[in-house]
Design a protein around this nucleic acid. Structure first.
Length: 159
DNA sequence: GCCAACGTTGGC
DNA sequence: GCCAACGTTGGC
């Protein structure tokens, strides 16, 4: 078995790829490709493990929000879109021998009963330390177990 | 659409 | 290796 379970928040623009799109994939599973930021890459390559929990966050919309939960089903491996010249995320510097960019596979577990908006996250005293609220641009970011349980409860309609 | 934040690039 | 210029992100 692997080590303890960790928690993450993945951002996506729903006009590009939404939680519903993830659910619509076979078995609700898709690779999380296209991340082109080194810090996020390091998490994908080195730290995110099978079984870890993922909060899926919709950005760049009128009311940005966490909209659902997913689980990691495959740990970091080279992002093949970096090697496709016709892909928008193509990167000439990434090779088979020396891949630069990585991705993981996630599977949709369930949509939230209600979206938990950015405004709500900002307003919750227990969430002041969230990376999202301090380095909003980081597209793959760690979430503490405490933050996870607060957001999970909010999204489950328990509060 | 604006613009602040911030990551990346490239000249030196 | 510094840092200015530039490009992108993403809330508003």
């Amino acid at each position: 078995m692997t080590g303890e379970r960790h928690f993450w928040l993945f951002k996506t623009e729903p006009s590009c790829f939404s939680f519903a799109d993830l659910q619509a994939r076979p078995d609700g599973t898709e690779h999380w490709d296209g991340v082109r930021n080194f810090q996020a890459r390091n998490y994908l390559r080195d730290e995110i493990g099978v079984g870890d929990g993922v909060l899926v966050y919709h950005s760049n919309i009128p009311e940005p929000a966490v909209v659902g939960v997913a689980v990691v089903v495959k740990a970091g491996y080279p992002d093949f879109t970096a090697r496709n010249p016709r892909n928008v995320h193509f990167d000439l510097k990434s090779t088979v021998d020396r891949p630069i960019w990585y991705m993981v596979d996630i599977r949709a577990e369930r949509p939230f009963y209600r979206p938990v908006s950015l405004a709500e996250l900002k307003g919750h005293p227990g969430l002041a330390g969230m990376v999202l609220l301090q380095r909003s641009r980081l597209s793959v970011q760690p979430v503490t177990p405490e933050q996870w349980s607060i957001i999970f409860r909010l999204g489950s309609g328990a509060e």
